[in-house]
Amino acid sequence: MDWKRASYGVEIDVRRGGAQVTHRLRDAAEIENLIAAGDARFALEVRCPVTQYACIRLDADPSFQVVWPPDEVGDEIFLLPGVVAVEDVVLPAAALTDLWRDSPCVPKGWWLAKGDVHTSQPLAASLVEYRRDADLPSGCMRVREDGSGEEPKFAVHLAPDVFGRVETDRDLQMAGLIAAFAILPMSDRFREGSDSRVAFLVRERLADAGVPAWDEGDDWDPARAATAVERLHAASDGALEEEA
């Protein structure tokens, strides 16, 4: 929408099975008034093309949780945030750009603000990839940085007898993640000034948890850092609970 001053942003923190969404409006009294009056809502669309799934969650609160049914979605989900009119509303022309001479009446469903599309991959899944390595002895693991992609990633190689368990064995997943964090400081992709989105998100997550980053002092603790990104027991914190 062609707002003169209003700006809209969103933070989406993807966890296992859902996301915590926080919408932010600035200089947007007109939109806030519509929401307060019940004529508009904060929105998050969830789409999974592989399973042909799509839904939308509306809320008057700018901060809410969204949980998606795990059996109905695949591994990659797209999240589309915004603010939507839930009634036919008249928008004040004074709040809109000069393209609008009269106050337009927009129909129910009109997007008053739209954010960038996000994807659902949890940060840990962006950081590590588990691979079967036939050259490893039974029960062994090794971790190497994979510099082939646009974003930094660590390849956790697992012996064949272990690889089969990785999807369900959280201890194994965490062992790989901790090992990746152990070699993270040696990666050029994580140095200060890197334009990597993943590096930025890791730094933000550590800052939120009060955990020093890899280049802040000599006390880098890969286990503490890894468990700031993914808890050891997902059910106690990392996963979002289904709302009643």
Binding site: R47, C48, P49, V50, Q52, Y53, A54, C55, I56, F78
Partner: peptide
């Protein structure tokens, strides 16, 4: 229908739209 829903026009996967 399924090609569009998988690749190009994922918005049609909303139950009411489909």
């Amino acid at each position: 229908l399924v090609r569009l829903g998988v690749w190009r026009l994922t918005v049609i996967n909303h139950d009411r739209t489909r």
